[in-house]
Design a protein around this nucleic acid. Sequence first.
DNA 1: GTTAGTGCAAACCTTTTGCAGCTCT
DNA 2: AGAGCTGCAAAAGGTTTGCACTAAC
Lengths: 169, 169
Amino acid sequence: MVVSGIKDSLKQQGVRLTRQRKILLDLIDQSGQHLDAERLFTLAREKDPKLNRVTVYRTLKLLKAGGLVDELDLMHHDGDQHYYETRLKQEHAHVICLRCGKIEEFFGDLLKKMRQQIETHFGFEIVLSRTEVGGYCSHCQALRAKELTDAPMVEPSATTGRARHPRSQ
Amino acid sequence: MVVSGIKDSLKQQGVRLTRQRKILLDLIDQSGQHLDAERLFTLAREKDPKLNRVTVYRTLKLLKAGGLVDELDLMHHDGDQHYYETRLKQEHAHVICLRCGKIEEFFGDLLKKMRQQIETHFGFEIVLSRTEVGGYCSHCQALRAKELTDAPMVEPSATTGRARHPRSQ
DNA sequence: GTTAGTGCAAACCTTTTGCAGCTCT
DNA sequence: AGAGCTGCAAAAGGTTTGCACTAAC
């Protein structure tokens, strides 16, 4: 469980561990998913209905600044929001299916090697990095071929509806 | 010059090559920089003061959907806007200095290899990908060390002002 | 008791949409 | 002529800020 380490890390910086932050930290760490602010807010509200959206943003900012979570864009496959994950595992790329939204994580020594090459080549000090890959998963490749065959003359519109999570209230 | 190829590509899709689009296409291609919508808008206005910001967004969306430009986030080092570059060169990573904003481009076969690994490993069809690296360039590493020494007890505030380009009018 | 953190409302930045009129082919 | 494109105004989506009140240490 990484969250306890995060809590220690925060305490040592004189950051107060409030009830709200405990809730958010636990959620980020336990979910195992890539949560955006809104999703995190919804989940947090189930535990504390008074918790404000702003607190979610402020906590995420804090964690990001402290290098405790990483911010992802996931190719903006579902809007322009950011996603977050605890910085625990070894470096990895995110592979996003642009059709179904499924996210795979790709580990490998290539990322590590590239990091080293960049640091050496530019004399650069890397603080954070991310690799995101968009395309079609094996499942959706077949479905897409079918879709294109069914309507061969019609370009799939860029404005095709995407299921978004509306803000309640 | 890549822009002529883009223009051909658009024409063949029945996309009209309007005065506004010509201006924008030329700017994106010639600048050699990573422009965001607002910067592109400002530059375009110098050539056509009537050109609207919305047209910039619509043109960028069109080019992106056609795979003619790539959208970058550049680690959001200066806000949440997107940046654009013509998809011409071989695949490369962007290396962004979080202090001075300088952007380096890193080429190498590692990216190509990783692409292949991901396609093989997941049976994934990659459409686009990006690797962004944030940190400190060699120049800023020294300056930062100095800054931290000068004010050793003060964490550099996350809210430290960033010079943004305000919208004229 | 202090200082940091919260909630609320309101602002902010970036991007998208609806619609009437214009223009490329 | 007619579909496609533009400009304008307005809205939307995502995030941040100001301020008075509250709670962690």
